[in-house]
């Protein structure tokens, strides 16, 4: 069964969509979209480094994404406006990544594959990495769900309940770095954040509780992955961007329909 590239691609998309959904909800609630971008763009630098050092791309992307996420977490609240800081870091990470790639001699690197993803080229071992990463992120988010939610609501309320918001932030940071590292193959560094945010945003009008939103986001994300792959196959369009397009159409549908359904 896994010998069919479409089935491998579908399973890969499924895995990332389901892991990204609850995490994406936190990215939306905490207004961390730019934070996600910085992490994802840094992954390109990770890819370049891992090729230069001949290590696995996943490990390189994970390491640099994590380093970036930790840097941003540490620098936040130290006198820089967050959006300025993230704007500087996100774009410089991408630029440094692209420049480093040009230094790689003798290695032919398909940059497009890392910027926009190449889901159709997912092989069995990629699939194993993607599903392990996705399962890890999902378990992490479920395990910390309640403290994370409390810390998201208000750091002081969290403190009063004996929860350390910094620690919860670290959990999110770690989850985000893992999702970036596994998703870079699916939608690429430039569109990872779309996979986090769009399903969550599309789920918002359907939900009355955080749990409903996370669950709906997973369903919408998975539907976008399957539908997007199908469409890209039918119309011969690039798979990653087609998945994101499908997700945004779903977003438009829930956003518009919520205006006509009284709640």
């Amino acid at each position: 069964m896994l010998d069919d590239f479409m089935i491998r691609a579908t399973l890969a998309g499924f895995g990332v969509a389901i892991a990204a959904a609850p995490l994406g909800c936190f990215v939306v609630w905490r207004r961390m979209a730019y934070f996600g971008d910085a992490t994802a763009h840094a992954a390109i630098l990770g890819v370049a480094l891992s090729l230069a050092l001949s290590t696995s791309v996943f490990a390189g992307a994970l390491a640099v994404a994590l380093a970036m996420a930790l840097t941003v977490s540490t620098l936040s609240g130290r006198g820089f406006a967050m959006d300025t800081l993230l704007g500087v870091l996100a774009h410089s990470a991408l630029a440094f990544g692209l420049v480093s790639v040009s230094f790689l001699q003798g290695i032919r690197l398909d940059l497009d594959a890392y910027l926009f993803g190449d889901i159709l080229a997912v092989n069995k071992s990629d699939l194993a990495v993607i599903w392990s990463g996705a399962a890890l992120v999902l378990l992490l988010t479920l395990w910390r769900w309640s403290p994370l939610l409390t810390a998201t609501l208000n750091p002081d309320l969290a403190h009063a309940s004996g929860i350390d918001p910094k620690r919860e932030q670290l959990v999110l940071t770690l989850g985000l770095a893992i999702v970036v590292a596994v998703a870079i193959k699916i939608v690429g560094a430039l569109l990872i954040v779309a996979l986090l945010i769009i399903p969550a945003a599309a789920a918002r009008p359907l939900a009355r509780t955080p749990e409903q939103m996370a669950f709906s986001a997973a369903v919408i994300g998975a539907a976008a992955a399957v539908g997007g792959l199908r469409l890209s196959f039918l119309f011969d369009t690039p798979s990653g961007p087609t998945i994101v397009c499908t997700a945004s159409v779903l977003f438009a549908i829930t956003a518009v329909s919520s205006r006509f359904i009284p709640r």
Binding site: S146, T152, L157, A201, P210
Partner: peptide, 14 residues
Amino acid sequence: TLPLTVRRFLCLPH
């Protein structure tokens, strides 16, 4: 962007 009923709010974190 955070859907939260009063019931759910009261049940945070326990």
